[in-house]
Nucleic acid binder design. Structure first.
Lengths: 242, 242, 242, 242
DNA sequence: TATGAATGAGCTTTCATTCAT
DNA sequence: CATGAATGAAAGCTCATTCAT
């Protein structure tokens, strides 16, 4: 009886293992040679299967690439969400630090593939990654940022997409610098200062005005408040329209 | 005698014109189809010459690509230097604003080619751009930043490469967002807020701690920024309505 | 006991049913896509069996094709013989009419397969139909013709193979014309005139020279033929009008 | 000066020679292995050129096949017309004999290619010969036959397409028989009797009733005349409608 | 015996590069 | 130098056939 139950299980898991082997091999070869430069035969050899076998899993080279991209971004998104979920700190900047840490590390480790991923967005019409993957991934930041605004830790007038570009743009360029500057092993040591920098920058720029020294509100502050209120009205309007 | 002197001049300029035609055609085709997707025959046709002729200027497709990249970054660097040279303002943040404006605009206009340029860094071993081009280009920022520190406008403890990554990373990601969000013509309007944002961010984070006399200016700047943000939201709203 | 006796019977018939399913599926697919265009996997799917199973019945694609051809011509021959056996008329021309009717109808119904069958004779060395099938099939005509000569209904000096070629050649080309000209359902109506034509032609050309008593019949036949022709023209006219 | 005039001439004729070499090689290989079985590399080798060169003359294998078919039928049609034009005899049956002789000989010599040509009509959707080639070719017969009717040598009530099928069908089957029966060299000797046969057959069956013995018109003939008149009316009607 | 996943030889087609003119 | 016809290596993909289950 057990045999009967286990058998299909084994079959399926074997297929899944093979499929994953193909994906892994494909990713490695794609990263190494780019999409056009990668040869299906080499992917097959690396996956330890025959050339034709790939085509019973994926209809074409382009579709294989798509599957690799899909899985990559799915995993990334899930991990980022896990990191957020398992961060105990409640404050925005602590959580931002956690996210920045995860992202920077990930970008450094997967720099080549992320680069390839972006490159395909432009050139290759058939493999163009649906931007949804990326959008889904950065949604983690978006959620965190909005929550920070709701909690009063961040300025109400901050524009989300600008903050997002600053966050991810800075981190990605920093990742490249870290990669380039150093060999592989010391890369981690450099990440601390970069993250501190980014978080500090967000604190300085996007942090809500706090404490007494800011409280000696004069005309300027009143104006600022009025603008904030206007801003809130806008947001409400925008929401009603969408 | 004049003839003898002029003739080679004409010859040379004719050759140079042809070479430039090849480079222009190559860049257009490379951008449109990527490196592997571009056909030498199409480049030749676009340049108005025979297929074989290209090979008397460049030894191979890879070398042609290299030449295109070379020229592109050289022009960019020279333009950036010109922008800096022709900016009359002496203060760091004003000059930074000028540089940011130039860079953002350039990145938006040449987004596809810059992307291709980066893509080749990884994938294609034979066309990998020597990083020197880029290093040369960002030297403009480096020089500006160091001068800011020397003049006492920036904190002495700021780490140059981190600041540089934040500057270029933020701008590049913002450029992508602007591109994606908007059609072509209104892109310029969006650039203002983004630049304000970046400059304000540098001011807040890297600006040397100053006395009370700067407070007024600070408040003004913050208000200005808030208004800019509102403006950006307006634009977005207007777009959604159209 | 009954079980024991019946069981192998069932087994055998099951196998035979499966084999026939393969042959039927193969014929359909071969006709639809030609020999090279047909895929074994599609034949298997259509036969409702696994891909590999075909190979326990036929060693290769070529052999399967051969079996299909074999069966096809065997069935044709057997049917033609049955038609001859069940024709009560004794006179040559009546029997010829019966054979012509059967052949024309068969060729129309199996036009595509017969075409494929002929095509393979030339092209594909491994599937070349042994000409014996065909020879066996046309033997029905040969026998009939010789009997006609023996009975004194046909000229003694007629050359058998020439007559045979005229008979089958005319019918096959007529079948093509009928196919092309008309949709499917009305094809049968057109067959009458064609058969009349051929039979009349054999009568006029191969018929033994007879006495006056045949003259009446001859005239009748000619009138009948003329009317048939008119009928054919009617049909054509009717079609053009619809 | 001569050089200038001759040079392009040479160029063009060289290209044309190469193109013809490709067509010849293609025809040979297609005949030998069928459309699917033929390899482009073998065609190239036989034409004495590189593999890729074919593709600067024909876009694909299918198009090459089409060109071969095109040329083949064009040549055949032109030759048949030439034969008809150079036949001095005016009588229908003499001219028919000339056409039959040409056709039979041609079919024997090109049997394999004609077979392939027919085979493609069914199977291969992309190479299906437009039936216009064939229609154009048989138009020679059609014209001849109609002229025979006009001249009163042939029955008015004869149906053209039936006569055509009998003519070409008989000849083609006869050609096959001749081929099969004999080696190559003696084939010609066999052609005489076959042609005599066919012409005699047309004379007996389609020849207009002549001479006095047919003139003792009785009721039958009157009926026949009436039918002929009916037929003429029909023809007029059909013409008015088209 | 039946299955269908796996195989890999072999196909057409593309295109950077060469070279006779 | 300029040309573009010719080249042929190389790649993606198909499918008859095999074989472990």
């Amino acid at each position: 009886m057990a045999t009967k139950a286990v058998h299909p299980e084994t079959q399926r898991s074997k297929l899944e293992r093979k499929e994953q082997a193909i994906l892994d091999a494909a990713r490695a070869i794609f990263v190494e040679h780019g999409f056009d430069g990668a040869r299906m035969s080499e992917i097959a050899r690396r996956a330890g299967i025959g050339e034709g076998t790939i085509y019973s899993y994926y209809e074409s080279k382009a579709e294989l690439m798509l599957a690799v991209l899909q899985q990559f971004w799915d995993v990334l998104t899930r991990e980022a969400e896990t990191v957020m979920a398992s961060t105990k700190a409640e404050g925005f900047f602590d959580r931002l630090r956690a996210l920045a840490g995860y992202h920077l590390n990930t970008v450094i480790l997967n720099a080549d593939f992320i680069n390839l991923s972006f490159a395909l967005r432009r050139n290759n019409s058939e493999v163009s990654v649906s931007r949804d993957h990326l959008r889904h991934y950065v949604a983690v930041f978006d959620q965190l940022f909005r929550r920070g605004q709701d909690r009063g830790e961040l300025r109400r007038d901050a524009v989300l997409w600008q903050a997002r570009d600053i966050f991810y743009g800075s981190l990605e360029y920093s990742a490249r610098s870290i990669e380039m500057t150093i060999g592989e092993d010391r890369a981690e040591r450099q990440q601390g200062p970069v993250i501190d920098q980014i978080v500090a920058l967000f604190e300085a720029h996007y942090g809500a005005v706090r404490g007494a020294e800011a409280a000696d509100s004069d005309d300027f502050n009143r104006l600022s408040l009025q603008i904030d209120q206007l801003d809130a009205k806008f947001e409400a309007l925008a929401k009603r329209l969408s």
